[in-house]
């Protein structure tokens, strides 16, 4: 009876551990996606600034699909159309557009930080659970030796 109870406890602990590890993995994926997003936003700011510096009249190539490009002439980069979410894009003056992207970066960084904090908490839980599993394993091994001794 006690053995079955021990087994159940051990199964519960390992199930909890697996669930927490899965949550950590999910958070890791989300953080990696946020990193890509933040890097894309920074790249966008750099590209916009470079285009503005190049000025009107420059020849550029516009991508059409994955393998084709057509030539176009750059106009003044004073106004930028920014996707603000929910299927809406708005035209903003250059500086305002940059500020908007920077705001998105700040929000993404804050979310990343929150996710990292959650991950640290989960790691602490993993540590505590692993400790419990080790203790439980030792206790079981001790019981086993005791039973063997009694049988002899």
């Amino acid at each position: 009876m006690a053995v079955k109870k021990d087994e159940k406890r051990m199964t519960d602990l390992t199930r909890q551990l697996r669930s927490i590890i899965a949550q950590i993995e999910a958070l890791r994926v989300e953080i990696a996606q946020l990193d890509i997003l933040i890097s894309e936003y920074r790249q966008t700011i750099t590209t916009l600034r470079n285009l503005k510096d190049l000025g009107a009249g420059k020849e550029v190539l516009l991508p059409v699909g994955r393998i084709a490009q057509v030539g176009a002439k750059l106009e003044d980069v004073d106004k930028i159309v920014i996707n603000i979410g929910s299927g809406i894009s708005v035209e903003l003056p250059f500086d305002e557009a940059i500020q908007q992207i920077e705001k998105e970066i700040v929000a993404a960084l804050a979310l990343r930080e929150a996710l990292e904090r959650a991950m640290v908490e989960l790691y602490e839980k993993v540590e505590a659970l692993s400790q419990k599993i080790r203790e439980h394993g030792h206790a079981e091994a001790g019981e086993g030796k005791k039973d063997e001794g009694e049988q002899k």
Binding site: K79, V81, N83, G87, I88, S89, V90, E91, L92
Partner: peptide, 8 residues
């Protein structure tokens, strides 16, 4: 006067 677009 600001242009607004729907992304479809």
């Amino acid at each position: 006067g600001r242009h607004i677009y729907l992304n479809l």
